[in-house]
Amino acid sequence: MVKQIRLFLLLTFLFCACEQWVLPEDPGTEPAAVFDQLWEDVYARYSFFDHKNLDWQQVRTRYRQEVKEDMGQLELYDLLAEMLFELEDGHVNLSTGFNRSRNWEWYQNFPVNYDENLIEEVYLRRDYWISGPLWHQVLDDVLYVNYRSFGQRISPANLRVVLERAKRGRGVIIDVRNNGGGNLSNASLLASAFAAEETIYARERKKSGPATNDFGPWQDMKISPWEEDTFLGPVVVLTNRRSYSATTFFAQMMKSLPNAITLGDQTGGGGGTPVFGELSNGWTYRFSATQTIDLDERQLEDGVLTDVRVDLSPVAVSRGEDNLISAALRIIRQQ
């Protein structure tokens, strides 16, 4: 019995001693520790340092000296937000209980090219159809579809209705201006309804290590025709600088289809899928951890260029016309 008890006590002691070694304490919550956690994680996992020619070590040198032991939460937030702003990436946010940092320069410095009131009054009018997140109206013989957020799920039933209406006309205009993105699966589903065959539209790679150029291999990104139905007539996709993230991917998908073109201004970008993280003081953050390139090896982070570059004309707007939609209608009718 004594031997057994001794063995039990010895093993218990050994394993309890290991506990601290297996799971060391959580990092501290003092400002310097929080700063270092964020800086290090961004340094290890952010995917666009080389592409944006940004020296993150040098950024640290500038901001780390601003960290004071007695600085308040608001001051620390301001400092970290300012540091993250340097990444010039719409997929970078620091979320606290009181504020959320962001960099929205990807659209703020560019023309809007979209007038929501005009769309509702002149094009959607009062009797447009609402199929889930897809709002659609027939403009003479072309179906105009307005989709405001890829965060809203498209159901197969929604898509079926749109395709049935599209088939009665000459073509489709898909307006994703001001669509800030959402779920990539919605983008893939919508694009698949206009694809005749499996098509590679981009290539993606993920960070695979802490060095700025540590990436896994490029992987093809594909769209396949929707199993239920497809519309293979002409399609024009309208984009502007506020078409971001999943909308950028959608624009690239449609651009790769032979029956579709993009029109308007280029998309805002957002070609890196964000990864999330948390700091020991309770704040959370996200930043891009992947890269996506089109078939010409151009980064989707820089936006998808349109096939036809058109800006919204104030003169056209003043007479109650969206000249991007007019241009899209002309293109479809010419085919």
Binding site: K206, S208, P217, Q219, A289
Partner: peptide
């Protein structure tokens, strides 16, 4: 009956999620 047991693993293999995503590094759909 009182039984005390212990085991230590020495050699084997592991598959772990990658640096960013769920799939281990090197995984490919192709």
């Amino acid at each position: 009956e009182w039984t005390t047991m212990t085991q230590v693993q020495v050699l084997g293999f592991q598959l772990k999620s990658g640096y960013i995503g769920a799939d281990p590094e090197g995984f490919s759909k192709d």
